[in-house]
Simulated scan of single mutants.
Amino acid sequence: MTHSLTMVRDDLTGEATRGLIAAHLAGMLANTPVESVHALDLGELQHPSVQVYSAWIGDEIAAVGAFKTFDSDRAELKSMRVADAFLGRGLGRAMLVHLGREARQAGIRSLWLETGAGPDFVAARRLYESAGFSYCPPFGDYSPDPLSVFMTRDLAPSPGPAAL
């Protein structure tokens, strides 16, 4: 039986979501020195400025993603992670598109992100590049870091079916 993908606003109380967030943090810490890890922990993801979404296939969590509003019309993408069992199925792109739509509906006009600069983050950078993100200097409270790259993109006012 094939299950369709369901995206939901997540309150972070479910064990499956908490587990995927924990795996995300562990993965970041395994590949990056702690001073260069900018992933939000569970408490930070529960801040009112953050909207978290989870993607489900049947009753299995497939992906998680969030955005954090940092002023009236700008937000930062946070905690993008696809569960290992669902890698390579386009779920990272599906979550990215969903986050873009939700951000636009919240009045966000541009999205920003920080991701790793090393080889472990090539797939993430390619995903963001293919979705129209361009490299930019550090933003907000970020400082230059050789292990980080920064990207941004404007959100078009009326997107096409697969646009952010």
Rank of each mutant, 00 (worst) to 15 (best):
A23K: 06
S72T: 14
V64C: 11
P137F: 07
A94E: 05
H38Q: 09
E76K: 05
D11T: 13
L155P: 00
S130F: 07
R81M: 08
E114D: 00
G43E: 13
D73L: 11
G43L: 04
P161D: 15
V8E: 14
G132H: 03
S72L: 13
S72Y: 08
T13K: 11
L77M: 14
H47A: 15
G14Y: 03
D73V: 12
G19C: 10
A75L: 07
D141A: 15
R104L: 11
A75S: 05
V149N: 00
A106N: 07
R74M: 11
V8A: 13
K78Y: 03
V34K: 12
H24T: 12
A63R: 02
Y142K: 05
A156V: 15
F133V: 01
L164G: 06
A23D: 14
M7A: 10
Q46E: 15
T32K: 00
Y135M: 07
D71M: 09
T13Q: 15
G90V: 05
F121T: 01
A26F: 04
A156T: 15
G107R: 12
A162N: 10
P144A: 15
A94F: 00
G100F: 00
G58C: 06
L20W: 02
H38K: 13
L45Y: 03
Y128V: 01
A106S: 07
L87T: 14
I57M: 12
M1K: 09
G140D: 09
A123N: 10
P119V: 11
C136H: 08
S79Q: 04
T69L: 09
R93C: 03
I57D: 01
G90S: 06
G100A: 06
A123V: 13
A22R: 10
L99G: 02
D73G: 12
A22H: 12
K68M: 10
G88P: 04
S49N: 14
V37Y: 04
G19V: 09
A75T: 01
R81C: 10
R126N: 13
P33R: 07
L5E: 02
E44D: 12
S143R: 11
A62H: 02
P33L: 04
L99C: 05
R74N: 12
D71L: 05
G116K: 00
F86D: 03
G90Q: 07
L40H: 08
L45G: 07
S4Q: 15
L113H: 03
G92Q: 01
